[in-house]
Amino acid sequence: MNELELALARLRAGELVAIPTETVYGLAADAANLDAVARIFALKGRPADHPVIVHIAGSAQLPQWARDIPDSAWKLAEAFWPGPLTLILKRQPHVLDAVTGGQDTVGLRAPAHPLTHELLVRFDGGLAAPSANRFGHVSPTRAHHVRDEFGAECPLVLDGGPCDVGVESTIVSLAGEHPVLLRPGGVTREAIEALLNTPLLHHQDSASAKMRASGLLDSHYSPRTPLVTGEYANILPAIEQALAAGEPIAIISIGTWPAHGPQGDVYPMPDNPEQYARLIYDKLRQLDKQTYSRIFLQLPPITPGWLAVNDRLRRAAHSRI
């Protein structure tokens, strides 16, 4: 029995399997099996009212999970599935409250990773699959991240290599009168607006402000080592003070760290948002294993291309200067 067949057998038996996607690795269980979904929440330490995204093979499965599906959902699925886009739609009555957090909506996504796509086609159902990490911690983008996270409790991990996108999916709610961007991600706001020919509302400015969805908590994606973020000029005095005091710190820079700046353990990151997104969780996890007392991170520009990265860094930071 190969690993894919073993994963199918375990999922059908109500067990957990860590799966690769193009965004991050997910902790998967049969979305129609209440006990299996409960195992996800128990292993992650996830609050019971926090909904999980259901992963499906493609748009043909939409009616199995959602009702009153608007034309905009079909358009987005045709354009961006399989891919890093989650659609929030009105749920079918049979969808478990454990999956939806007791809400009348369900999040659905068709991941693009070929290994997981084949798994979903053969499973012929939906997989509830939040990120494969303890709740609130940095998401995993490599198979060994999942093993590091759970240790002896780790389930079977399908190793699909490093994740191509590296940050979680874009979430768009189509459950109301207007489409709402709940979380930025691998599909850009501009691409969605261009396809729908209408602006996306921001969830904080809409009727969906109280909607619960994955990754919307103020504190999320955080390393255990305190993460301090800010623009170069703002974090510079704190870095200089920490180094002068002999504090063991790490510095994550955007591009090359200025030669005239304080010289410590500097870890340059790409100044391209796609490359940065692909690497940032791995970098945070690497530094979290060291003996640093704090990690200082130079924030990227506040421009549309950096929207998803800045969203994650805002939630990951323990403090911002």
Rank of each mutant, 00 (worst) to 15 (best):
N2F: 04
E3N: 07
L6R: 08
R10T: 09
G14W: 00
E15H: 15
L16T: 03
A18K: 03
T21F: 01
E22P: 06
V24I: 12
V37N: 03
A38Q: 15
I40Y: 09
F41P: 02
F41Y: 15
L43V: 05
L43W: 04
G45T: 14
D49E: 14
H55C: 09
A57K: 08
A57P: 02
G58N: 14
S59K: 15
A60E: 15
A73Q: 13
A77R: 13
A77C: 11
P82F: 08
T86N: 02
L87P: 05
Q92H: 14
P93C: 12
V95T: 01
L96I: 10
V99Y: 06
D104S: 11
V106H: 01
A110G: 06
H113D: 03
E118I: 05
L119I: 06
L119V: 04
L119F: 02
V121Y: 04
R122F: 08
R122M: 04
D124M: 12
A129Q: 09
S131P: 11
F135W: 14
F135D: 07
H137V: 03
A143V: 13
H144E: 11
H144W: 07
R147Q: 14
D148S: 12
E149D: 15
L156D: 01
P162C: 12
D164Y: 10
V165N: 07
S169D: 06
T170F: 04
T170W: 01
S173M: 04
P184C: 07
G185Q: 03
T188H: 10
E193C: 10
E193K: 11
A194C: 09
A194G: 10
L195N: 05
L196W: 05
P199F: 08
L201A: 15
L201C: 12
H202L: 14
Q204K: 14
S206R: 03
M211G: 10
M211K: 03
G215N: 01
L216C: 09
S219Q: 14
P223Y: 02
R224P: 00
G230V: 00
E231K: 09
E231Y: 03
N234R: 14
E240F: 02
Q241F: 11
L243Q: 07
A244S: 14
I251V: 13
I252T: 00
T256K: 12
T256Y: 06
A259F: 13
P262A: 09
Y267A: 02
Y267I: 10
P268D: 05
P268C: 12
M269V: 06
P270W: 12
E274P: 00
Q275M: 03
R278W: 11
R278M: 14
I280S: 00
I280Q: 02
K283D: 00
R285E: 06
Q286S: 12
L287C: 07
Y292W: 11
I295A: 01
L299V: 03
P300E: 01
I302K: 07
I302N: 12
T303A: 15
P304R: 06
L307S: 13
V309T: 07
R312A: 05
R315S: 13
H318R: 14
S319G: 05
I321C: 11
I321R: 13
